[in-house]
Design a protein around this nucleic acid. Sequence first.
DNA 1: AACGCTAATCTAAACGTTTCGAATCTGTCA
DNA 2: TGACAGATTCGAAACGTTTAGATTAGCGTT
Lengths: 339, 339
Amino acid sequence: MQHVAEAARVSVATVSALLNGTATVSPELTQRIEQAIRDIGYKRNAIARSLKMGTTRTIGLTVPHITNPFFTDVVSVIQQAFDRAGYAVMLCCTDEDLNTQDEQIRLLLDRMVDGLIVARVGDGGILKDIVEDANVPVVLLDRLCEGVDTDAVVLDNRRAVFDAVTYLIHLGHRRIGYITGTSDISPMHDRMIGYREALQAAGLPVAEELVRSGNFHEIDGYNATMQLLSLHDRPSAIFSANNPMVIGTMKAIRDIGLSCPEDISVACFDDFPWSDVFVPQLTTVAQPVQAIGEQAANLLLDRLAGNRDAPPRKLVLKGRLMIRNSCRPLGAVAQSVSA
Amino acid sequence: MQHVAEAARVSVATVSALLNGTATVSPELTQRIEQAIRDIGYKRNAIARSLKMGTTRTIGLTVPHITNPFFTDVVSVIQQAFDRAGYAVMLCCTDEDLNTQDEQIRLLLDRMVDGLIVARVGDGGILKDIVEDANVPVVLLDRLCEGVDTDAVVLDNRRAVFDAVTYLIHLGHRRIGYITGTSDISPMHDRMIGYREALQAAGLPVAEELVRSGNFHEIDGYNATMQLLSLHDRPSAIFSANNPMVIGTMKAIRDIGLSCPEDISVACFDDFPWSDVFVPQLTTVAQPVQAIGEQAANLLLDRLAGNRDAPPRKLVLKGRLMIRNSCRPLGAVAQSVSA
DNA sequence: AACGCTAATCTAAACGTTTCGAATCTGTCA
DNA sequence: TGACAGATTCGAAACGTTTAGATTAGCGTT
C-alpha cells in the first residue's frame, strides 16, 4: 500500500479509503490509484488488516474424524456456507481425544479465528472457559456438552433410535443387540436411552449382555459383534450406533459364517452414499446432513454479524429411518407378511 | 504482552525474549514474567506475530470434493501431518470449478498461507503465476498441471488402469466399457491411455462407443452406464475411472434389471472402506492414500523448512489392484476355471 | 581507579493496515 | 473581501509483536 500510494502520489490513507469505500475519493485520484494498483499488482495484506481490525474472517471447525461419512458431509456443507460468506475455514481433526481437541482449539484461538464450530470430544475441556469468556462465539455440532451453554445443533437421537428399534420389534425381533460408542458424549447417551425406551415401551426386558460399547472404530464394532454372536442365546438383530462400527459388524457376521439378513438383521445410525447399491441394502437412520451443516453455519454467521447477546439457541433436528432390506421379519410377523 | 511487561516490571522485549528463547533472561525475571503471564492469562497474538515474522504457520489445501472418499482420506492424512508439525490447515473445496479454485487460492494467499497443496482443477489458472512468483511453495496433489513446474505427488495412473483392464481381458472380456471424467486433468488422461494400451497390448480394438465421459459425479456415472448398457452389442465389463461415478454405474445396472457380476462385471478406481463387506465386493484400484498424503506433506514441509531452491520433485506412486468378486470369468476362461 | 568484557535488559523502529482528527481547497454567501 | 461550509486529502497514531542496537550492571585486570 505504501508503494501504491507513492506511485499514485497520494497518501496511504486515501488508498485505504478507496479500497474500503470508507470515504469519497475524487475520480482523478481514484483513477491514479487504480492504475498504480494494477501496475504494481498490489494485493492487500489480510494479516495486517486482521491485526488492526481484530477480525480474521476465518472460523475454526473441529470434528472427531473426518473420514466418518457423517462428518465428511457436514464439513463439506459448512465449508461451502462459509465460503459463500467470504470466510475461510480451518479444519482440525481431534481423533476423539480430549487433549488433542484442547490443543487444536488453542491453536485456532491463537490464530484469532472469529468463531468456532465444534463437534466436541470428552467433557468440554477448555471449551467451557472459551464459552464463558465469550470473546469468540462457539456453536456445538452434533454433540451437546454439559456446562457449556452456547448455540448448538443436534439430532433428536433418542427419538431416532426409538423409532429404529421399534421398527425391529414390529418385525418380530425380541433380542436386539446394541452397539454403542463411549457414553460420555450426548448422542451416544441419548441413543442408548432410545434403545431402552423402545424395549420398555414394547414390554421387553433390557438384557445387559446385549449391550456392548466400543470406541467408534470399525474394530470396536467387529469385536462387539463377535461377542454378541457368541452368546448362547444370540440376538436376532443388531443395531449399531455409528457408521464405522457397522462395517465391523458386517465383517464379523461374514467371518463367523452367517449372513445378513437371513441369519441376523442389522440396522445402524448414519446413512451413506453406498447404502442402496450393494447387498444387503442397509437400513439406516439418516441424519439431515445438509440441514445440520447449514443451521450450524447460520447460527455462527448470525453471531458474527453482531448478534452476540441473544440467549443460546439449541436446534434439534429429526432423523429419518431409511428402511431397506437388511432386517427381516421374524416368527408370526413373517407368517403374516408372507401370507 | 504490554500488560505482562508492566505487571512484571520489565520491558516487552524481555518478555518476547523469554517467550521465544532468543536471549537468556535471568531466573529472577523469568519467574516474575511467568507469574505475570499466569495472573493475566496472557496468550501471544499469532496474528501480530505473523505480521512481523512474515509467516503464519498455516497452509492452504484445496480439493475438488471432500466427499470423494479418496480426497477425504488424503485430507485426513495431510491434516494430521501438519498438525504434528504445528501448522494449521485451511481447507477449501473447489467443486471441480476453475473460477472457484482461483478465488479460493486468492483467499488463501490473502491470508498469507505459508504454502499450498492443490488438487487442481481445469487448467492451472492463477496457479501458474503463483508458482512462477515463487513466494509461496506449492505442491500439486493427485493431478499434474501443464506449465506449472513444481513439486507433485501423483499416482502412476496409466499403469494402474493398464493392470486393471488387463486383468479384465485375462478373465476373457473383450468389450470393456470405460467411464472417464473430463479429460483435461492428468489422471483422467493417463488412465484413459492405460485403458487403450491394455486393449492394444492384447490385440483388441478400441471401440469409441465403449468410452463415455462424465463430470465425476454419481449421476454422470449413471447416465454413462445407461448409454453403455443400451448399446446393441453391450460390453461385458465396465471400468469406472472414479469412485462416485461407480455408484451411478451400480445403480444403473440395478435399475436396468441386470446384476453384477452375473450379467456384467464392474471394476473401478479408488478403494473405499466398505468394499469388502457388501455384495458384490468391488474389484478396485486402491491408491496408497496414506503415502500420498504423507509425501505431499513432507514435500511442502521440506520447502517450508527453507529448502526453496531445490528443483521441483515429482513423486509417482503405484496403485494396487484389489481383486474381489465383481468381475467374473467369461467364455473359455470360465470353462478352464471351473474345470 | 580506570578499563574492558560479558551478560542482561531496554529503547525504538518496523511489519502493513485502519482511522481519527487536522489541513487544504473550492465555492458560496453576507 | 472575508468567513464559512462542504468536500477531499493527509499525517500520524494505533493494532501486538520481533529485533537490532544501545544501555546498564557486575566483575576481574592492570
